[in-house]
């Protein structure tokens, strides 16, 4: 084959290869610059008790999960079962109730169960902005020092729990003791 054919062919194959790799890459590639950084500060009312103030210190102390949810968020319902299961395992799960109405959020927990240790009520998304929240649901894994070790955007499914979140929690807990 002559150079005239080989070079364009190689170029075209190269471009196709790049596109193919791009397609295979894991989706949800939104950057999360907060991974590796300390949990951002906030101060909010507790969802259950408007008198109680919660800060990031309330979420820190053990390896923990922080979930961002809302009663109007359908995909939060999909992942809710996983939080119930993880809570039974003994991992503390904290959460932000994001852009929600208090009575509707409480009703949601009544219906679907409440696996959350503490819930910070964030109707104006003040903490949401500090934590770099795009949209519900989002999930963070904190280590015992309160450093964000992992962030998942969108609903978690069994695969994310089994392949990412559980191994990470186990690894962090092992490192702790």
């Amino acid at each position: 084959m002559s150079k005239r054919i080989v070079i364009p062919l190689a170029l075209a194959l190269g471009v196709l290869g790049l596109l193919y790799v791009g397609l295979q890459m894991e989706d949800g590639g939104l950057p999360s610059p907060l991974v590796g950084k300390p949990a951002p500060p906030f101060e909010l009312e507790s969802l259950h008790d408007p008198e109680e103030r919660l800060t990031e210190a309330d979420f820190i102390g053990q390896v923990a999960i922080v979930n961002v949810w809302a009663s109007w968020c359908d995909s939060c319902r999909l992942e809710h079962q996983h939080w119930r299961a993880l809570a039974q395992r003994g991992t503390p799960i904290y959460s932000f109730n994001y852009r929600d109405r208090r009575e509707q959020a409480l009703r949601y927990l009544e219906v679907f169960g409440d696996p959350f240790e503490k819930i910070a009520f964030d109707p104006q998304a003040d903490a949401g902005l500090e934590w770099g929240v795009y949209a519900t649901p989002e999930t963070y894994v904190l280590d015992a020092e309160g450093i964000i070790r992992y962030k998942h955007i969108g609903p978690v499914d069994a695969r994310v729990i089994q392949e990412k979140i559980l191994p990470l929690i186990e690894e962090l807990e092992a490192g702790q003791s």
């Binding site: 939104l30 950057p31 610059p33 950084k37 934590w131 770099g132």
Partner: peptide, 8 residues
Amino acid sequence: MTHRYGDF
């Protein structure tokens, strides 16, 4: 903003 949402 970039601290929270990245260069994006």
